[in-house]
């Protein structure tokens, strides 16, 4: 599903300074896996995610996602790549003037899916995330956990092969986070590959999934059934 080969990504800082966000990172993630990406702030987790959606392009090395070499991907084909990827943010990024149903439907409308398709698929996904009864609500009428469910519904509505979550529980309390994790687990069980960047030690420890740890842009640990920190 994902293959990174000696990927390096640096950002300019100031006049001639440079920050290396990722340094010769190699990583393979198979179809259907659930992978945590952990590491301190600034270690390169979000940068890794952005390389996978081709928001950013690696300076060196190769990034393969869903069988495509992203360096060689023509820019008009980038949207097609992104239709195979769902993306969930820490801050939800819902459109404030659209209802829950409209927010989810939006993701299908703008890629040209038919009206009937949308009418069938949106309630299905809302049921999956447990928000059927909130379909007509506006985002500000929802709790943080509920908003994150909407955002997951939007990411998943097009049946992506890959779900990328950048600290999806970062703004949520522990109890709510558990609910979100259950949802992501359920999505993962449908065969969707899930990659989740997080700081949340409890979650990582309780799930016992593969853990990739970054530090200063390098992979310092890749454990099959890992926990958040060393030695735990």
């Amino acid at each position: 599903m994902i293959r990174l080969h000696e990927v390096t990504k640096a950002f300019k800082r100031g006049r001639d300074g440079e920050v290396v966000a990722l340094e010769t990172v190699s990583l393979e993630i198979a179809k259907g896996e659930f992978v945590f990406v952990v590491g301190p702030s600034g270690s390169g987790k979000s940068t890794l995610m952005r390389l996978l959606t081709r928001e950013q392009v690696a300076d060196a090395g190769e990034v393969w996602v869903a069988g495509k070499n992203l360096k060689k991907l023509r820019s008009w084909k980038v949207p097609l790549l992104r239709r195979e990827i769902g993306y969930v943010f820490q801050d939800f990024k819902l459109l404030p003037n659209k209802t829950v149903r409209e927010n989810v439907a939006f993701a299908l409308e703008v890629i040209g899916r038919g009206r009937r398709d949308i009418r069938d698929r949106v309630p299905e996904v809302l049921e999956l995330v447990g928000l059927t009864d909130k379909a007509g609500a506006l985002p500000h009428e929802l709790s943080g956990g509920q908003q994150q469910r909407v955002s997951i519904a939007r990411a998943f509505v097009n049946n992506p092969r890959l779900l990328l979550c950048d600290e999806p529980t970062g703004n949520l309390d522990p109890a709510t986070s558990v609910g979100i994790m259950k949802l992501l687990d359920r999505i993962n069980r449908t065969g969707t590959t899930v990659v989740m960047a997080t700081h949340d030690q409890q979650i990582v420890d309780s799930m016992r999934r593969r853990v990739v740890e970054l530090e200063d842009g390098r992979i310092v640990r890749d454990q099959v059934r890992g926990v958040y920190g060393y030695g735990a």
Partner: peptide, 17 residues
């Protein structure tokens, strides 16, 4: 810009954005 960012992320084609 927020709406546009979401459109791009879910894979709306460039001309459609």
């Amino acid at each position: 810009r927020e709406q546009t960012a979401i459109m791009k992320l879910v894979g709306a084609s460039n001309w459609y954005v």
